[in-house]
């Protein structure tokens, strides 16, 4: 995608009479970001990186330079930390399962909504499906905790009605993470759906007509027209969601606090907890590692998606 944009931009640059003035005006356009980044993000990011090489704690906030340099000790400690290793593993499992689940649900919903159903029901379904994404996590947590209550929860009541003894969903080490995964997919697919819908509506009807003339069936049209045309939207959703999912934290924080026995502790949640208990240097190191992984992942995705 980056490549096509660049190619397009390069063509534009050749075609325009005053290429030099473009840089000047461009910087005016990007000024809002440059200013906000320089003022509010650049410094704090460097502080975050810097403190990962020190033994800084919450007690040093008044005198942040009065700390000892410890080199890579925080980073080395990460690898010995059982909970951190578990958090990394949980995050991997979470991303690898939630990402395709969310994309698949989002795509299915978008295609169904775009398959020529009437406007009013379409709007109604769209609203319903998008609702979880825009709802405050506080509300979601309250609702889901009650749904999954082992005794009084509707889920287990329903299971009991068909003779199944429902488990204690969030207190079970093997079930807690899958529950969080399903809940996150439920919460997130509406976002992908909206992006896909916009992209689907942008596909010219003539393409489908041409394919139909060539004798392409329903599946072939989807495979050879829809999917290729959705490529930018798919890339966007994949990159954006994997960045978001790799940082997942809210769901386990409100549902399980990372338990039972760390079964739902994510990398971000572990970092959050380390900050919360004042261990700034160590938390900074963990955050730096997480950031590096996310950046590498995004880079890889851009690379793989580059048109050959």
């Amino acid at each position: 995608m980056v490549a096509t944009v660049e190619a397009r931009a390069a063509r534009a640059a050749v075609a325009t009479p005053r290429p030099l003035r473009r840089t000047g005006i461009a910087w005016v356009f990007v000024a809002p970001f440059v200013v906000v980044f320089a003022v509010f993000w650049a410094g704090p990011l460097l502080v975050g990186l810097g403190m990962s090489f020190t033994d800084m704690r919450s007690t040093d906030v008044r005198n942040p330079l009065g700390v000892d340099l410890v080199g890579l000790r925080n980073y080395l400690r990460l690898f010995d930390d059982e909970l951190m290793r578990k958090a990394a593993f949980n995050t991997l499992v979470f991303v690898v399962t939630t990402l395709p689940l969310t994309l698949g649900l989002g795509l299915a919903a978008a295609v169904a909504l775009n398959s020529g159903i009437a406007r009013l029901p379409a709007a109604f379904f769209r609203l319903g499906y998008y609702l979880p994404y825009i709802t405050s996590i506080i509300g979601i947590a309250v609702a889901w905790r009650f749904l999954l209550d082992p005794e009084a929860g509707p889920v287990n009541q329903l299971l009991a009605a068909v003779g199944v003894d429902g488990p204690s969903w969030l207190a079970d080490e093997t079930l807690a993470l899958p529950v969080i995964i399903v809940m996150t997919a439920w919460r997130s697919f509406g976002f992908d759906m909206v992006i896909f819908l916009a992209a689907l509506q942008g596909i010219p009807k003539e393409l489908y007509e041409a394919a139909e003339v060539d004798g392409a069936g329903r599946w072939e049209r989807f495979r050879w027209v829809t999917l290729p045309m959705l490529r930018p939207a798919l890339l966007f959703c994949t990159v954006y969601s994997s960045i978001g999912f790799t940082q997942f934290m809210e769901e386990p924080l409100v549902m399980t606090k990372g338990g039972p026995a760390g079964a739902t502790t994510s990398a971000s949640l572990a970092i959050y907890n380390q900050f919360g208990s004042g261990n700034f240097g160590y938390a900074g190191a963990a955050a730096t590692v997480l950031f590096t992984v996310i950046a590498a992942l995004a880079f890889l995705q851009f690379r793989l998606a580059r048109p050959r």
Binding site: W41, G43, P44, V47, G48, V61, I243, S268, A295
Partner: peptide, 15 residues
């Protein structure tokens, strides 16, 4: 992209 990828809690106190 960097800003998108950094866990928000890291920058909170400096901010």
């Amino acid at each position: 992209l960097v800003q998108l990828m950094v866990p928000a809690i890291v920058v909170m106190i400096p901010q």
